[in-house]
Design a protein around this nucleic acid. Structure first.
Lengths: 150, 150
DNA sequence: CCAGTACATCAAGTGGACTTGAGGTCAAGG
DNA sequence: CCTTGACCTCAAGTCCACTTGATGTACTGG
């Protein structure tokens, strides 16, 4: 239906699983870009799907859209990140991801312990230790990570 | 300083790393409870620290405070969860946690792939595949998991 | 006794990530 | 030509997890 290999917002929404309104919102944040038709409709390059996938992945890691935007402008002023850009971003995010995984594994291991012990021997339980990394991570789900290292 | 083995809100805040205002907020949600002194100050049992640790852990897993509250009223109407209660909660949350870890590992493995390949061979890249589990997880960080299984 | 600090309530504000609604436009099919 | 559906903008609303501010009360040290 689209001759120019460009996607309408609805198509992008369908293929990415992200609502059109969210896509417009991403655009206001500079996370994605679009061209317009004569009738002012957004047209997206196919590469936007990759970009969106990266955004979702980064959200998974715990980055805010602001953090992601920074990473994007920082690394890729153009719409389709190059191999090199992508590699840099991936390298940068990986430690965060690793740490996040480790944190969750710690929680899981504690659950295992607690399932075994009933968690009444609290002294050595890291869940119970308020001043470990978990506590330092921040005020709950909305900020799972500190801001990107400068 | 406290004879009755009860903790003032400031002490709980200091020991748990959670702000007093957040503790009061948790109380409005029924996540924690307190008794009052004659002067209307909150006094917490020591076990509240464990409860708070559990709350933070569950947030780590991606549960909302609402979800946690449900799990709590569901399992533990009393202030200090018993060994059995805690075991059940842990057992219930563990699959969520495992899944979350797996999802993140998937992302990480993809990053590894992409660091190697530059992510330009997108066909087999699961990051690029919009209809996989990642896309299904939901609208970003605020709801990393579907609501608790019934 | 008096100052200072810690705590109380309650209403309102914040930030993130969107969604919803009102009101209008554009392009295709019958 | 006219309807329908997808799209547009912009302002406002929503949900979550808290925080902040105003105003008042209680206990502690000097």
């Amino acid at each position: 239906m689209n001759r120019d290999d460009l996607l309408a917002i609805g198509e992008v929404a369908a293929r990415s699983g992200v609502a059109s309104s969210a896509l417009r919102y991403y655009e206001t944040l500079g996370l994605i870009t679009s061209t317009r038709t004569s009738g002012d409709r957004r047209r997206y390059r196919r590469s936007v799907l990759r970009r969106i996938a990266v955004i979702r992945a980064a959200q998974q890691v715990g980055l805010s859209l602001g953090d992601i935007a920074i990473a994007f402008v920082d690394l890729a002023p153009h719409a389709a990140p190059t191999k090199r850009d992508w590699r840099r971003m991936a390298a940068r995010w990986k430690p965060l991801l690793e740490r996040r995984i480790q944190d969750l594994q710690r929680v899981r291991d504690n659950l295992d312990n607690c399932i075994g012990c009933g968690c009444l021997s609290m002294q050595q339980c890291t869940l119970y230790n308020p001043h470990d990394k978990l506590a330092a991570i921040g005020p709950g789900p909305r900020r799972l990570f500190p801001p990107l290292p400068r």
